[in-house]
């Protein structure tokens, strides 16, 4: 089943001044359970594409359907609600609320979803255990390493039971050991829980772990390979 159907995506920044054509007609479909990397040189449009698919930005042309909903027609407030229910986010940095503990950060989105205290409690503990942080639940982000913070971010992204998780260069600030560790966790969650991951990266070691690699060049898909 296709959970993401992006067709004819174009994105032009600064249309009135010096226009930047970041995406020039991208078609991409993602199925449930994929583990896909978006790769390409700097400035090729990876972040732009992920933001549009993740409902953070509007495309200049084209449409994005997530589980059948055309999110390119939603207004800002509807998008916020849509993201809350359907999309998990892991960013390169600034993922966590600094004044909350790891566990509270994981609970946060569930709280926005008005989940019960009981459910928040069990699910956040379960997720933190899944990312190997059951000993760190009461630490604040500043007391955690960069790799640990990204693992909390993965747990947080999964908390709302999203349709898919988008991660824009989640390992860019990590050393190779933490990178490998984070990838292990993501791959395991993908395999065992059938969670769909869509991430961008520059890192060859991360690319090697992906099952499908979509390469962008100058805002177009140049290659799209699926490994078996």
């Amino acid at each position: 089943m296709n959970i993401i159907e992006a067709t004819g995506i174009e994105k032009v920044y600064n249309p009135n001044k010096i226009a930047v054509h970041a995406l020039n007609g991208v078609d991409l479909t993602i199925e449930q359970g994929e583990f896909t990397a978006i790769v390409g040189p700097s400035g090729s449009g990876k972040t732009t594409l992920l933001n549009i698919i993740g409902g953070l930005d509007h495309p200049t042309a084209g449409s994005v359907k997530v589980e059948g909903t055309d999110i390119s027609t939603l207004n800002d407030n509807q998008l916020i609600d849509f993201r809350k229910e359907h999309i998990g986010f892991v960013f390169q940095a600034y993922n966590l609320i600094p004044v909350l503990t790891a566990k509270e950060n994981v609970e946060f989105v569930m709280l926005l979803q008005k989940r019960s205290q009981q459910e928040r409690e069990t699910r956040s503990m379960e997720l933190l255990r899944a990312v190997g942080l059951e000993d760190q639940v009461n630490k604040r982000p500043s007391q955690l390493s960069g790799g640990q913070q990204q693992r909390v971010a993965v747990a947080r992204a999964l908390a709302p039971k999203p349709t898919f998780v988008m991660a824009d260069e989640p390992t860019a600030n990590l050393d190779s050991k933490s990178t490998a560790n984070l990838l292990d966790i993501m791959a395991r969650l993908n395999k065992e829980e059938n969670i769909t991951f869509l991430f961008s990266t520059h890192d060859q070691r991360v690319i090697d772990r992906a099952r499908r690699v979509v390469t962008l060049v100058d805002g177009r898909i140049e290659t799209d390979e699926t490994k078996f």
């Binding site: 993740g54 609600d81 993201r83 986010f89 960013f91 600034y94 946060f108 926005l112």
Partner: peptide, 16 residues
């Protein structure tokens, strides 16, 4: 600013 952007990205609405 970044943190507020992140909060809104993950689904905290404007009213909140």
């Amino acid at each position: 600013y970044k943190e507020l952007g992140m909060l809104m990205a993950v689904g905290m609405n404007k009213v909140r």
